[in-house]
Amino acid sequence: MKAETPRADPASAAGEPASPPAGKNRPLWLHLVGLPGVTAVAVLSAMVLPIPLAVILALFTASLAAWSAAALASRIRTSEQERCSLDAQLVQSQKLAAIGEMSAGIAHEINNPMAIIAQESDWMTHLMSQPQVTPENLAELRDSLAEIVRQVDRCKAITHNLLNFSRKMDPILQQEHLERIMEDMVLLVEKEAKLQGVSIVRDYDPELAAIQTDVPLLRQVVLNLLLNAFQAIPGQGTITVSTRPAGADRVAIAVADTGAGILPENMSKIFNPFFTTKPPGVGTGLGLSMCHGIVDRLGGAITVESEPGRGAKFTVTLPR
């Protein structure tokens, strides 16, 4: 029985009229006409009427004018709010689309390692149900365990990268030299790079003054660009890091490599979350989209130039 009663509209249930209050429906022009009108009445009455009466009337008309002005202001506010809420709706639907795309990406990236973990567990169960544990079985068990740990690390890399997306939006600004920020990250990757035959060339502008920026965030950007550059070089090669002034009020940092470069058809996709050309487990496709998000927050821009086969150059410009 209960289910058959149609669900009541909360507004009509509370006994409110269906139509909005009359004042809200008054056309805008009435307020515009009313405002100078009542003011004129007040001025005129002050000229012709005895003083006490004029004062009362003036006060009355002034309050009328004030009411009218307030109504006009609220009216303008309302229409502005309506426009804002339309904008907000648009942004919201774009956000929802992005979240949908993002969720599919996350699901895929997490489902794959989970499937491997489940299979390794199944295989371990199979091995342990054998009548006796041979040394070969033991080695396989160890190998499966190690694989599970690897796949958990893979999931961790994804979720930790996602947490960076959800980090509080306000950057914490501090004064720092760009060269310092870059050099910290270069030192982090240089040893491994050298071992693989990749040398790092520094091309810092010594004149460049320190800037106000969020140092940990910018470090993440530089590290991601360096890792991508390193991963793009198949054998031996060079990564060049640089800092430059970019006009009067901006600075630029760049990471260039002599690697594989980016195919023209991929250029528009590389900043999308989960876009990757790297094998599963190596690429998450989150690095550049995170860089883009951070640079946006810092009030800067990130651009890329590339000639396939010759390498790529990522440039980040930032406000000073």
Binding site: N112, I116, W123, G281
Partner: peptide, 8 residues
Amino acid sequence: DEDRFRTT
């Protein structure tokens, strides 16, 4: 395309 997934 996942090596480990395939082999296991």
